[in-house]
Design a protein around this nucleic acid. Sequence first.
DNA 1: CTTTTATGAATGAAGG
DNA 2: CCTTCATTCATAAAAG
Lengths: 229, 229
Amino acid sequence: MGWDNKSPPPPPPPPPLPQLEPNHHQHQNNDIVDGGNGAAAVGGVLYVKVMTDEQLEILRTQIAVYATICEQLVEMHKAITAQQDLAGVRLGNLYWDPLVTSAGHKITARQRWTPTPMQLQILERIFDKGLGIPSKQKIKDITAELSLHGQISETNVYNWFQNRRARSKRKQPNTAPSNAESEVETDAESPKEKKREPENLKLQASSTPGAEDLSFQSREISSEMLSVD
Amino acid sequence: MGWDNKSPPPPPPPPPLPQLEPNHHQHQNNDIVDGGNGAAAVGGVLYVKVMTDEQLEILRTQIAVYATICEQLVEMHKAITAQQDLAGVRLGNLYWDPLVTSAGHKITARQRWTPTPMQLQILERIFDKGLGIPSKQKIKDITAELSLHGQISETNVYNWFQNRRARSKRKQPNTAPSNAESEVETDAESPKEKKREPENLKLQASSTPGAEDLSFQSREISSEMLSVD
DNA sequence: CTTTTATGAATGAAGG
DNA sequence: CCTTCATTCATAAAAG
């Protein structure tokens, strides 16, 4: 498979030290069993299925490794799930069924607010009036008004203006800098009205072999950033 | 634009699981081994570590089950991360621990820090648990700990707590346990506690306090499977 | 039905 | 602390 083009595949967990402590009780009792089909006396010699300590150890190790891997995977899943759950109200991505979802699950798909045409019209009208971000009180009023046309909350209104402004700004950097044409990264000519510009990728200059550039930002916060209270 | 969509089910590659293939050679030839440390002659009786066919079968089954589980988990993880992996070609989000630095992929650093699931989990725990505002020293400690799970700076931690607090606060007036619940399909969310401010629609409160069931137990499986007895 | 686009919402970071 | 901004994520809606 040559899918190693882009998407970093899920890194298989590094099998850490397989520590098998949960159940140490492996048949250490030495019995020449004959119980099941494990032993057979042939010609006066007792033949049994035998495993040496070494072999047993190998098996135990293997099982332990699997257990560890499973635990890690489970932990990872929890973490990821937790993130998506906590970080986002909406989830409903994948819910895998194999051994967890035995019963029919009902993933509560979070619906997002969608403005009705009427609401949108009103919102647009208000927005076009040129006012910036409506104050909180303004938002309340608007919300009240829009409530007559459909389900809506103040947050919806707030978000709408927030997004509307941000995106209209992104759409047209046409601030018309009359003469001094600064070097700007403007490469988006939006033929449409409100079109988001596919942003290009960011910097990538880790030419250092074997060293990922993982410096995010480590500004010094010694001054007043952290001086709380 | 459309890069942040779900990825179509990619050709299911074989699970990149460590081939911990057990020594399947279950000694079909019956030998009373004594070679290793598995046998000992005591008082004229030969004691060896013995496993019946049944026991062997159990072991093999266990290993097989683990293998299957691991496969499924890996598959699930792929499904989970698929979207996000594809979502950002530029965001080689390391989800957990170290191994992301396997290949010299273009793990370009993002512009803004994004907590890994592990980090988020820890942060969340700290936030929930005790105190409210971590002191400067506390932040240092937390940062140090979180550094083990990914790049992070003290500023990140500080900001996170700041935002976390501010946004959780803006969500409290949701103290209506006596909700009539008139089954509105408009919106259904289970605010565990995070989130910003859904500021839900009037009597719209299916706020099931943390009724998430999206996690499964590994403990159960593990214990069951590891009990060879 | 699958892919693409539009856009509501979450959130890290900056400002005050 | 609180507000604002920028960027990102996820999904409804639209296109193919």
